[in-house]
């Protein structure tokens, strides 16, 4: 009887104390997250700047250009610098007129960007060579539109207190992205 009671009590206690309610880990340091953030920073910096430059070259301007320092550097060429609390970047952009569709293409060199998250974390991104931007007709439903597609490669380094934790190599081919990171493909 005592033995049965002991087994019953033990069963109850083990059931109560070993009840697994979640087997997820909440692990976020994945290749996908590292590549996604690299892509977002590229979009926020060079891509949005080239779009703004294109609007400026065609005679219009908007509020996004207020944070940028745009200096002419020869015919159809500009040096772009931007400094904000979280992000600093610079590059040289050259406009290449396109006689086929009338939309200018762009070639960018020397792109460097530092993105900060708090005091400890930062991401440094550098373009590997030239990044070219071409306008491409995007077919969609209900609307079709022109969008800038890029060709080129970037390398980013994720740091905490100056120590590199991860890197990401990102290659754009006609707007399609491929990446490789220190956490895998």
């Amino acid at each position: 009887m005592t033995r049965k009671l002991f087994v019953a009590a033990l069963t109850v206690i083990m059931t109560m104390t070993s009840c697994v309610v979640r087997d997820s880990s909440g692990y976020m340091r994945t290749s996908r997250n590292i590549a996604n953030l690299t892509g977002e920073i590229v979009d926020m910096s060079i891509v949005s700047s080239v779009e703004a430059l294109d609007r400026m070259a065609s005679g219009s301007s908007d509020a996004s250009m207020e944070t940028m320092d745009i200096t002419p550097d020869g015919p159809d060429a500009w040096i772009v610098k931007s400094v904000s609390d979280r992000m600093e970047f610079s590059f040289r952009a050259i406009r290449v007129p396109d006689d086929i569709d009338g939309f200018s293409n762009w070639t960018c060199t020397g792109f460097r960007c530092t993105y900060r998250d708090g005091e400890a974390y930062k991401v440094e991104i550098e373009a590997e060579g030239t990044i070219s931007f071409d306008w491409s007709w995007e077919y969609g439903v209900p609307n079709s539109y022109y969008r800038l597609v890029q060709n080129g490669a970037y390398r980013s380094e994720f740091m905490r207190d100056g120590q590199v934790l991860d890197w990401c190599e990102m290659v754009y081919v006609d707007g399609t992205v491929r990446y490789r990171t220190s956490q895998g493909m």
Partner: peptide, 16 residues
Amino acid sequence: LDVHDIYSDYHGLTLS
């Protein structure tokens, strides 16, 4: 996700 989210702590099995 921001950078600190990527390096936030993760956890093992959650028990109750």
